[in-house]
């Protein structure tokens, strides 16, 4: 999998579930791309398509330049605090950036602001603990 080192974006990452699943996750389905699975290293990007943008509206939080990366895009996600890295494929649209404008995740005073990436449990747990709901990340491709 081509997981590059060219800087793409930075911000806050959260996690979500998709694909066949248990509990309240059961209604999510395969996501905007139809292939999303909780057990794979997948992610949701707020500018996966024009329709996706209408839902997430990162521009309302000052993230208007966030680039379009559609289904199948590959990203290298790096935990700002620990440097742990995971390579993911975009398979869904999200998170709803506009609902949490200005929210920050920090490492020792260095903060990354705004939710700009949702990771599946597999991807999120590779770089952090699921019981902590958000992480500051750098994203490369």
């Amino acid at each position: 999998m081509a997981c590059g080192s060219t800087y793409l974006w930075r911000g806050e990452a959260t996690w979500f579930c998709c694909g066949n699943a248990w509990g309240p996750c059961g209604s999510h389905g395969g996501g905007a791309c139809g292939t999303c699975r909780s057990s794979a290293n997948h992610g949701a990007w707020p500018n996966a398509s024009a329709a996706c943008w209408d839902i997430t509206r990162p521009d309302l939080c000052g993230e208007g330049n966030i680039p379009r990366r559609g289904c199948g895009s590959v990203m290298n996600v790096r935990h700002q605090c620990t440097g742990a890295t995971v390579c993911i494929t975009i398979t869904d649209c999200g998170p709803r950036t506009k609902s949490f404008c200005g929210e920050a995740a920090c490492c020792n005073g260095q903060c990354r602001t705004n939710r700009i990436l949702d990771l599946t449990p597999a991807a999120y747990s590779a770089i952090g603990s699921l019981s902590s709901g958000k992480l500051p990340v750098w994203i490369y491709e």
Binding site: T85, C107, G109, Q110, A126, Y140
Partner: peptide, 25 residues
């Protein structure tokens, strides 16, 4: 105590910092 190790770096320097062992790659 003290300043952040990775948080204060720019994007390229943050990527170049060595990875810890918990690395799914």
């Amino acid at each position: 105590v003290g300043a952040s190790a990775l948080g204060g770096l720019d994007a390229d320097a943050a990527f170049a910092a060595p990875s810890p062992s918990l690395d799914p790659a």
